[in-house]
């Protein structure tokens, strides 16, 4: 949205929306159709067992889930680099980084603890 030629009076009308671009029917419907497709595909993949391996299916549905989250962010939450002068996007990027560290770190550390602390491995460690 270019606010270059907006008058102060026009800005006051937009103040309630805090500088968010007005939503459109087209935007909501695009987001809705995309998310229906992106919801149906993972359910179909899992319920019909389309892909051979569990690993491949897990990777596919995680990827589709990530794409669907982006779709919701863009079309429903109206996330764009310009809203609130870029601060919402900055907060989002910061959160995504923290979430990625928390999730990947927990899974990684706990998996290795689980594997390396198995009773079968303990006498291997004592002989080292």
């Amino acid at each position: 949205m270019s606010h270059d030629h907006t008058t102060p009076g026009h800005d006051a009308a937009h103040a309630a929306e805090g500088g968010h671009a007005p939503s459109t029917f087209r935007g909501y419907m695009t987001g809705f159709v995309l998310s229906v497709i992106l919801t149906v595909i993972p359910f179909w993949l899992v319920m019909d067992g389309v892909l051979a391996g569990s690993g491949a299916t897990a990777l596919a549905i995680l990827g589709i889930g990530a794409v669907q989250m982006v779709v919701h962010m863009v079309y429903f939450l109206h996330m764009n680099p310009r809203s609130e002068g870029g601060w919402t996007l900055l907060a989002l990027i910061f959160t995504v980084i923290i979430v990625a560290i928390a999730l990947a770190g927990s899974l990684w550390v706990m998996y290795h603890l689980n594997v390396n602390m198995m009773p079968g491995h303990l006498h291997d460690m004592s002989s080292m």
Binding site: S2, H3, D4, T6, D11, A12, A15, E17, G18, G19, H20, E84, G85, W87, T88, A91
Partner: peptide, 11 residues
């Protein structure tokens, strides 16, 4: 600046 939000509620 082109546009500055008047209130920070949404942020």
């Amino acid at each position: 600046e082109p546009h500055h939000p008047e209130n920070g509620t949404l942020l």
